[in-house]
Computed example of a mutant assay.
Amino acid sequence: MPEIDTSPDNGRGGWVPYLYYPSVPAAGIFVALFTICAAVHIFRLFKYKGWYFIPFIIGIIFEAIGYVGRIGSHYNFNSLGFFIMQSLLILLAPALFAASIYMTLSRIAIALHAEQFLVIRARWLTTFFVTGDVLSFLAQSSGGGLMAGGKPDSAKLGQKVITGGLFIQIFFFCGFIIIATIFHRRLSTSPSHAIEKVKGRKYIWTMYAANGLILIRSMFRVIEYIMPHDGPLLANEAYLYVFDATLMFIVVALYIVVKPYGDLFDEWKRRKDAGGLELTRR
């Protein structure tokens, strides 16, 4: 591979999209993994009609296309199109995962006849956290656009904007985990909800695991973007695959093993159809 020119005379004031040539085998593996997972989730989406998981599936598709962009960057190193593709799609996919995960807690609570244990009314819970997720999404996407401008000054500003968006994401993640933990504790200590506690256990722990993995990934990204463009995390591709690609694949795989549909969510739909929004106003 030719040496990467980071001198001020390289035509972009010293800025380069990468400090390495993206690995084709590594990207190819995750293109295949995310594509297979997307196919499984899409099949189940239409089979079980779990439409609230559409953002999650779009996130999986973002991941797959993002790693295609990294393959394109390997063969066309200076292409801003491939750089923007991989940068934005891989960056934004977890925000879409989060949007669907935020919707699961109120559904679990209603399905278990335990919405009274929520700190925030079920009807407002999803709205509150998805709104925060949208704010994070918008901030990260605008920051990614600035970073893709190909100029050192805009890249630095873009890093700051992305960092702000990631802090918003972390703030809402932490708040969601606290509310979910309070709900779980109240459900577990309620003597009249012993059966519901057992029914909801795997869904609640899957939600914890997914949130924890996305939180670790977001913290990694914050540290990455706080550092300069030539910092060790951005300069070493391995960190991306360990703390982003692998963690996000585990999140996607978790919701294949523990389906976000099935009997529990059939009960949520039955109660919703029977009582409408009155179910969530208690």
Rank of each mutant, 00 (worst) to 15 (best):
G28A: 14
G28E: 08
G28R: 10
G28H: 02
I29D: 01
I29M: 11
F30W: 10
F30V: 05
F30A: 03
V31P: 02
L33A: 11
L33F: 11
L33I: 10
L33Q: 06
F34L: 00
T35S: 13
T35D: 02
I36H: 04
I36Y: 07
I36K: 02
C37D: 12
A38V: 07
A38Y: 08
A39S: 06
A39Q: 08
A39E: 01
V40I: 15
H41A: 03
H41M: 05
I42G: 05
I42M: 07
I42Q: 05
R44D: 13
R44M: 06
R44E: 08
L45Y: 12
L45T: 05
L45G: 00
L45E: 08
F46V: 12
F46H: 10
F46N: 12
K47G: 03
K47N: 13
K49I: 04
K49T: 09
K49P: 09
G50M: 12
G50T: 15
Y52E: 06
Y52F: 15
Y52T: 02
F53Y: 08
F53E: 01
F53T: 01
I54S: 04
P55T: 06
I57V: 15
I57M: 07
I57P: 11
I57G: 00
I58P: 03
I58D: 10
I58Q: 03
I58W: 11
G59Y: 00
G59R: 02
G59I: 00
I60T: 14
I61G: 01
F62E: 06
F62A: 06
E63G: 01
E63N: 08
E63W: 07
E63V: 11
A64L: 10
I65C: 06
I65H: 11
G66N: 13
G66F: 07
Y67A: 02
Y67T: 03
Y67Q: 00
Y67D: 10
V68H: 00
G69I: 00
G69S: 05
R70V: 04
R70K: 15
R70G: 14
I71Y: 10
G72R: 02
S73Y: 04
S73V: 06
H74N: 12
H74E: 12
Y75S: 14
N76I: 03
N76D: 15
N78P: 09
N78V: 07
N78L: 15
S79A: 14
L80V: 12
L80I: 13
L80M: 12
G81Q: 12
G81Y: 08
G81T: 15
G81N: 13
G81V: 13
G81S: 14
F83T: 04
F83W: 07
I84R: 09
I84M: 15
M85P: 10
M85S: 07
M85Q: 12
M85A: 06
M85C: 14
Q86L: 01
Q86P: 12
Q86C: 09
Q86E: 00
Q86K: 00
S87K: 14
L88Y: 09
L89W: 01
L89K: 01
L89Q: 03
I90C: 14
I90M: 07
I90N: 13
L91A: 06
L92C: 08
L92V: 10
L92Y: 03
A93C: 04
A93T: 08
A93G: 04
A95M: 08
A95I: 07
F97N: 01
F97G: 07
A98D: 09
A99G: 04
A99T: 13
A99P: 03
A99W: 09
A99F: 11
S100T: 13
S100M: 04
S100R: 07
